[in-house]
C-alpha cells in the first residue's frame, strides 16, 4: 500500500507538486493522468524514491521510501524514456539488476526474453525506442517487484506490443498482487487496465476515484415534461449539471440507477432516458469548473 501524504516538491523556479495526496491499495493499478507539465513525472519520481519531498511523507507499507533500500528492493521504476547503462547489452543489464534486486527471477527473465524474441547480446542503445521500452519491461518484470512504477510506459509501442505488455502487467497483478502506478497524458490509454484513477493538474491532485464505483454512480438523464417541470423533485436529486435543449432537459446526476429512475418516473415525464457516461464525461462533470480546463487532456 502506497500512501502519499500532503507531499510538496519545489524546484528552483516553480512548485511542481503541491500537497499531493494519493493512496494506492496493494494489488491495484493506479493511473495518474495529467497533461504535460502537470507534475506527473515529479510525483512518480517522488514515489520511486528518486526525489525527496520538501513537505509531506511517502510511505510504502508504512515505511518511508526515500533512501530506504528495504522498500526500494521491492520497487521498480521505468522512466518515460527508458535508460540503460551506457553500452550495456540486455544480458549485462540483467546481470546488473540480478545483483541488485534480491527477488530477481532468472526463469521469468528467460521466459520473457524468449516470448519477446530479444537478442540479449546486442547493445540496448542500438535498438529502436519501442524495443528499448520492451526490454525495460522485461527487465522490470524479471525483478518481480511488488510495486511497479511506470512513467508514460505505453508511448511509442505499437498496438500489438501494447496489448502484450498490458496483459503481462495484469497477469502479474493478479498472480502476485503487484501494485502498479502508471501515468499517462491520455485517459483512454489507461481506461482498460486501471482500477483507480487520479488526475493531476498544475501540481495538484484534482480527483482520485475508483473506476467501477464511478461508472455505476453517475448517469446522464434526458427528461421532458408536458407542463411544469417538477422543480422539487429535481432538487432532491444530486445534479452535477443541467442543460435545456428545447423542451428536453439534460442532467448529469449522481446516485444509484434504481433510485433515480424511481424518482423521475413518479413525476410522469414525457421522455425519460437514463444513459451511462464515458469515463471522460464523468471526469469532466465530476470536476466542475476544473473539468473544462482539462477537457483537452481526456479526449486527445
Amino acid at each position: 500500500m502506497i500512501e502519499v501524504q500532503k507531499v510538496s516538491k519545489v524546484f528552483d523556479r516553480y512548485e511542481a507538486v503541491q500537497e499531493a495526496q494519493i493512496s494506492i491499495q496493494k494489488g491495484s493499478i493506479y493511473g495518474l493522468i495529467g497533461s504535460n507539465g502537470a507534475g506527473k513525472t515529479t510525483l512518480i519520481k517522488l514515489v520511486a524514491g528518486i526525489y525527496q519531498p520538501d513537505l509531506g511523507r511517502i510511505t510504502i507499507d508504512g515505511q518511508d521510501n526515500f533512501e530506504n533500500t528495504k522498500v526500494k528492493k521491492k520497487m521498480f521504476y521505468i522512466p518515460d524514456h527508458p535508460y540503460f547503462l551506457t553500452h550495456y547489452t540486455t544480458l549485462q543489464m540483467a546481470q546488473f539488476y540480478r545483483s541488485i534486486y534480491p527477488n530477481w527471477s532468472q526463469e521469468r527473465y528467460e521466459t520473457l526474453v524468449a516470448s519477446f524474441k530479444v537478442n540479449v547480446k546486442k547493445k540496448i542503445h542500438t535498438f529502436s525506442k519501442g524495443w528499448q521500452r520492451q526490454i525495460a519491461f522485461i527487465l522490470a518484470l524479471s525483478t518481480r517487484p511488488e510495486v511497479l512504477i511506470l512513467d508514460e510506459p505505453l508511448d511509442g509501442l505499437d498496438a500489438v506490443v501494447r496489448k502484450k505488455v498490458k496483459n503481462l502487467l495484469i497477469q502479474d497483478v493478479s498472480e502476485r498482487e503487484m501494485t502498479i502506478l502508471i501515468s499517462s497524458h491520455n485517459l483512454r490509454e489507461l481506461e482498460d487496465i486501471c482500477d483507480h484513477i487520479g488526475i493531476i493538474h498544475r501540481g495538484k491532485i484534482l480527483i482520485e476515484k475508483e473506476l467501477d464505483e464511478l461508472k455505476s454512480d453517475i448517469h446522464k438523464v434526458q427528461v421532458a415534461y408536458k407542463g411544469e417541470v417538477p422543480e422539487h423533485v429535481i432538487k432532491r436529486l444530486s445534479v452535477l449539471h443541467t442543460e435545456k435543449r428545447g423542451s428536453v432537459f439534460l442532467c448529469i446526476v449522481k446516485g444509484k440507477e434504481e433510485e433515480i429512475s424511481e424518482l423521475i418516473l413518479n413525476t410522469n415525464p414525457v421522455i425519460f432516458d437514463l444513459l451511462p457516461l464515458t469515463l471522460e464525461e464523468i471526469f469532466i462533470y465530476e470536476m466542475g469548473d476544473n473539468g473544462y480546463a482539462i477537457e483537452n487532456i481526456m479526449v486527445e
Partner: peptide, 12 residues
C-alpha cells in the same frame, strides 16, 4: 537520466 536510474536502485 542516469542520475534517475542510479538513484532508483535499492542502493544507498
Amino acid at each position: 537520466q542516469s542520475a534517475d536510474l542510479m538513484h532508483s536502485l535499492p542502493i544507498r
